[in-house]
Design a protein around this nucleic acid. Structure first.
Lengths: 228, 228
DNA sequence: ACCGGATCAAGTGTCGACAATTATGACATC
DNA sequence: GATGTCATAATTGTCGACACTTGATCCGGT
């Protein structure tokens, strides 16, 4: 389990359009196709050995997930996630994941909560080791949030976060180093959220989750201010 | 200004796919194409006098807005908004619009706030008249929410609410009569939210907006329980 | 030398047709 | 009479080709 995606891009989807959609999404998220670059339909179609038909459908889906921008008769470009737009995403995540934490505290199964705590225990061990910088920030953080959102059981909520926003966050992390020194703090905050969920305190879980995401957003704001 | 949509489906978009997308979306929302019905690509293409290519792209966009479901090699169906899914939408609206109200209280211009109050004044007059049942529930309520979301200035937030969730809510209203007796209460709650925004109290505005949407959701829950 | 217009190329939008998969119906068998 | 199987038909997925728009380049005029 390398990534935290909702749909399976497991290379063996029935239709070509869906498969190439997953492939080019991964290519964009991981920076293989650079941000802001114009996408030529014939070029990409040739690259993946398919026709322009399925590729156009894949592009439509990419557009719906806000990874590419299209303007009529002008073509598609990979989005350039501006600083403001990145912060906007964190605002939405604060609202949505806060609600997800509240509902998860009410509806998550005891087994799922136990799994969640086990995940955090694993993260704690990894933070103690030397290579925690890379792993934790890369995937571990999203894995935690992913489970909370799944715990809400709200399908549309899961869809919005896992199919749109998380890919954008991952894209940002792959593009800039995201060498935040907040890993230890973030883990601590994760544990507080998990505790609130375990105690079935939805109000507190939402408050803590929103506070956590707000802190992440402020860390990014500080980093952006320094870089400038 | 009949509806509260973000994008202009003004019949004169450059590409056919975009135009037919707006047309079939309206047809679905207003019930012209019944919910749960299977969509035949050749039939719809012939109906709008276009080929299957643009229609397929329109279907992809409809799928991304969660108005139709597609399964590979099996075709597309108009979604049947189950009661649970309708309630899920209100949960998301509570989180998102609450945040929108908070930000709007901080960033909305004084002119926009004045317009908002004028809109509520107009609604108040219409409630006093005889035909308030039809208009207010049909469009007036969404108009208010639409302005608050616009006031947040968060483009992605605006996109999620106006291009996805509001159409689903409208679809539900067109399908079932939505003859709620909450119009007067809702107007009162709208005014409280507007007051909080005018006083630049984001915390209160969010709390009131969430309370308002929660009340709407509970009204629907009660109505569903009775119908059953 | 600079600006405006026309020509040309590249790329997107659209169309019709073919291939593959799935649903449907009849027929034979148990 | 019910069930399993096969053949047919309909629909979706995919492809290649054509029309139109956009942008650039080149030429001529001032």
């Amino acid at each position: 389990m390398t990534s935290a995606t909702a749909d399976s891009l497991d290379e063996e989807t029935s239709t070509i359009a869906d498969r190439v959609f997953g492939q080019v999404r991964q290519a964009i998220v991981e920076g293989e196709i650079p941000a802001g670059s114009k996408i030529s339909e014939p070029a990409l179609a040739a690259r993946y050995g398919i026709s322009r038909g399925p590729l156009r459908e894949a592009m439509r889906r990419l557009e719906s997930t806000n990874l590419v921008e299209r303007r009529p008769n002008l073509g598609a470009r990979v989005i350039t996630l501006s600083n403001d737009e990145l912060l906007e995403i964190y605002v939405i995540r604060e609202a949505l994941e806060g609600m997800a934490a509240r509902i998860a505290a009410e509806r998550m199964s005891d087994a799922a909560i136990a799994d969640l705590k086990a995940l955090l225990e694993q993260h704690r061990r990894e933070v103690a080791r030397a290579d925690w910088q890379t792993y934790f920030q890369e995937e571990g953080d999203l894995d935690f949030h992913f489970r909370i959102v799944q715990g809400s059981g709200n399908r549309r909520l899961i869809d919005i976060l896992c199919n749109d926003l998380y890919h954008l966050a991952r894209m940002y992390r792959c593009q800039f180093g995201m060498k935040s020194d907040r890993a230890a703090d973030a883990l601590k905050e994760h544990e507080l959220v998990a505790d609130a969920i375990a105690e079935r305190d939805g109000e507190l879980a939402e408050w803590l989750m929103r506070r956590h995401i707000r802190a992440s957003r402020r860390a990014i704001e500080r980093r952006l201010a320094v870089e400038r």
